[in-house]
């Protein structure tokens, strides 16, 4: 049996990672819920966002947290344009085409990063990189604590926005009944692009919270993409609450699983969960069987 003194910090660490995972998955599940497409490029776009935060820090000396007002609108604009001009045009009404187009996008982004910025793994150093916070006796690194609360705050803002704003209402209308929304005069193409943009804005925020305690290289998105999909299918495709809870679960599973099995085998647990859920409960743990 593992000592509680090892297990407890590991769970706390898992929860901090889980909050960021949840924010990433929230973007993915929003895009799925509204457009009914699987954005395979989600991980690669997170990688781009991480590079954005990195270069803002390295070239302009901007603190990662201060980069939020740049990264969030920046990623939003990128997402809007991508849906409007690239992905939306590739679909021809077939799921598989979107999957292929976003796979193509992944290839372009990853290899552009490789070409432009080489394969080196990069990290940034901030005054608080190595500082820690005492949480009930467990020492958790400060950036992770910030990430935890930052990701939760971003999630709360997003949910409030979807629930309260006019655009949020339109997004919910399109998600539920696309044809009906069109009939009452909602510009569905615009809502699609806005949703895609918001989905990527989540990545912009996640990147700002992630980088101080993490790293970036051209392949970094690969690891995230299947994790994000696992969270989304775990929580039920399109469900916000499910993505939130799924994020925490996967964060803890990964952290605690890593204790037992070592880093690389710990990852297998996530993929096995992913496969098992898709096979046996494709509606997710929290979704109702239809």
């Amino acid at each position: 049996m593992l000592e509680l003194s090892i297990l407890f910090p590991s769970i706390l660490n898992g929860l901090t990672t889980g909050a960021v995972y949840a924010l990433i998955a929230l973007g993915l599940t929003l895009i799925y819920g509204v457009l009914h497409i699987i954005n395979f490029a989600h991980g690669a776009l997170l990688m781009i966002a991480l590079y954005g935060v990195f270069f803002l820090n390295a070239k302009l000396g901007l603190d990662p947290y201060a980069a939020l007002p740049v990264m969030v609108p920046g990623m939003f604009a990128l997402g809007y344009a991508l849906q409007r001009f690239v992905i939306g045009r590739a679909s021809h009404g077939k799921d598989e085409n979107i999957l292929l187009a976003t796979l193509g996008l992944t290839l372009v982004l990853e290899n552009f990063a490789l070409y432009a910025w080489r394969s080196d793994t990069r990290t940034i150093e901030t005054p608080y990189t190595f500082s820690t916070v005492d949480v009930a006796g467990a020492m958790i690194s400060t950036p992770k604590v910030v990430a935890f609360f930052g990701a939760l705050a971003a999630t709360a803002i997003l949910l409030a926005f979807i629930a309260r704003s006019d655009l949020g209402r339109a997004i919910r209308a399109v998600a539920r009944e696309r044809q009906g929304a069109k009939l009452v005069g909602i510009d569905v193409e615009h809502v699609f692009a806005m949703s895609f943009g918001i989905g990527l804005a989540c990545l912009g925020a996640a990147a700002c919270f992630l980088l101080p305690a993490y790293y970036v290289n051209p392949q970094v998105g690969n690891g995230f993409v299947l994790i994000a999909f696992t969270i989304v299918v775990l929580g039920g495709m399109g469900s916000f609450a499910g993505a939130l809870l799924g994020g925490f679960i996967i964060g803890v599973v990964e952290s605690v699983g890593g204790l037992w099995l070592g880093e690389s085998l710990g990852q297998i647990g996530i993929f096995v969960i992913f496969i098992a859920i898709l096979l046996f409960r494709p509606q997710g743990i929290f979704g109702a069987r239809t």
Binding site: V86, L100, G104, L105, L107, V108, N111
Partner: peptide, 8 residues
């Protein structure tokens, strides 16, 4: 990178 663009 070019293959990806070709795919799209």
């Amino acid at each position: 990178m070019i293959y990806g663009a070709v795919l799209i």
